[in-house]
C-alpha cells in the first residue's frame, strides 16, 4: 500500500507543479468546458503567484492559531489555569462556529480590504482543532510517567517541556494539519475582500459562467490541501520517534 500511495502523491504533486508552471499546456483539457470561445485557462493573473499567495496566507494564519491554541491548551491544563478552561473552550468554539464569511464582513470595516480580514477569519476558524488536540494530548499523558517525572525532581516547567509536550506533539501536529487543510479551502473566500488567492479564479469563473475557471481554482486548491496534509504527515513519520503509549 505505502508504495502505491507514495507514487500517487508524487504524481499529484508533479501534476500540480506542471499545471502551475505551464497552465497553457493544459488548455486543450479545459477547452471543452468553455463556451463562446472564452479562454480555457485563467488569464487575468498568474496562477502560480495566486496559489503561493493563498498558501502564504494560510500558513501565516495557522502559525498564529497554533501559537494561541497551543498556548491556551497549556494554560488550561496547568492547575493554576484550569479555571480558564470553560472560557477558552467558548472562545475557540465561537471561532469555529462563526462563519468565516461573517468574520470577513465584520473585519473589513475595522481593518480594511485585502489580506488582513482573511487572516483574521482563518485564524479564528483554525483554532478549534489545534486547541482540542493539544488538550487531549496533554491530558492523556500516562499518569505513571508524569508521576515519575515529578518524582525524579523535574520542576513543573521542565516536566512540561521535556515530557508532556513531546508526548503530546503527535496530536498537536495532527491538529495543526487539520487546521491547515480546512483553511486552504476556506481561504478562497478571502478573494471576496480582495485578498490574493485562487478564490479570484473561482469568482471570475462564476461571474463569466466559465466552468473551466471554477474547476481550475477548485482543483488547485484541493490538490494543495491534500498534498499539504500528506506532506506534513510524511515529515512527522520521518522525524518523530515512534512512541508506544500503553
Amino acid at each position: 500500500m505505502p508504495r502505491a500511495a507514495t507514487f500517487l502523491r508524487l504524481a499529484a504533486l508533479a501534476l500540480l507543479v506542471a499545471f502551475l508552471l505551464k497552465p497553457q499546456g493544459f488548455a486543450p483539457l479545459f477547452a471543452p468546458l468553455t463556451q463562446y470561445g472564452a479562454p480555457a485557462i485563467y488569464d487575468q493573473g498568474n496562477l502560480l503567484t495566486l496559489a503561493l499567495a493563498q498558501l502564504g496566507t494560510v500558513c501565516l494564519a495557522a502559525l498564529a492559531s497554533s501559537i494561541v491554541a497551543v498556548g491556551l491548551g497549556i494554560l488550561v491544563t496547568r492547575p493554576s489555569g484550569a479555571q480558564f478552561l470553560p472560557l477558552s473552550r467558548t472562545l475557540v468554539n465561537v471561532g469555529q462556529t462563526f462563519p468565516p464569511v461573517a468574520v470577513l464582513a465584520v473585519a473589513v470595516p475595522m481593518v480594511g480590504f485585502g489580506e488582513r480580514p482573511t487572516l483574521i477569519a482563518l485564524f479564528a476558524y483554525g483554532l478549534l482543532p489545534i486547541f482540542e488536540n493539544t488538550l487531549v494530548g496533554l491530558r492523556t499523558c500516562p499518569p505513571a510517567v508524569l508521576e515519575a517525572a515529578s518524582g525524579m525532581g523535574m520542576s513543573a516547567r521542565q516536566r512540561l517541556i521535556s515530557v508532556e509536550l513531546p508526548l503530546a506533539t503527535p496530536l498537536i501536529l495532527e491538529g495543526i494539519r487539520l487546521s491547515l487543510v480546512i483553511n486552504v479551502g476556506t481561504a478562497t473566500i478571502g478573494s471576496t475582500v480582495a485578498a490574493k488567492g485562487l478564490g479570484e479564479v473561482i469568482i471570475a469563473g462564476l461571474l463569466s459562467s466559465n466552468t473551466a475557471f471554477i474547476l481550475q481554482g477548485g482543483l488547485v486548491t484541493g490538490l494543495m490541501a491534500i498534498l499539504l496534509y500528506d506532506g506534513m504527515a510524511a515529515l512527522e513519520r520521518r522525524f518523530l520517534r515512534p512512541v508506544a503509549l500503553d
Partner: peptide, 20 residues
C-alpha cells in the same frame, strides 16, 4: 521539593519510563 527529589531515588509500579 524538586531539589529534594533529585537526591532521592523513586521507583513506582509500572516504572513510568519516559516512552519518548
Amino acid at each position: 521539593a524538586y531539589l529534594l527529589r533529585r537526591r532521592i531515588g523513586y521507583v513506582i509500579q509500572g516504572n513510568g519510563l519516559f516512552p519518548h
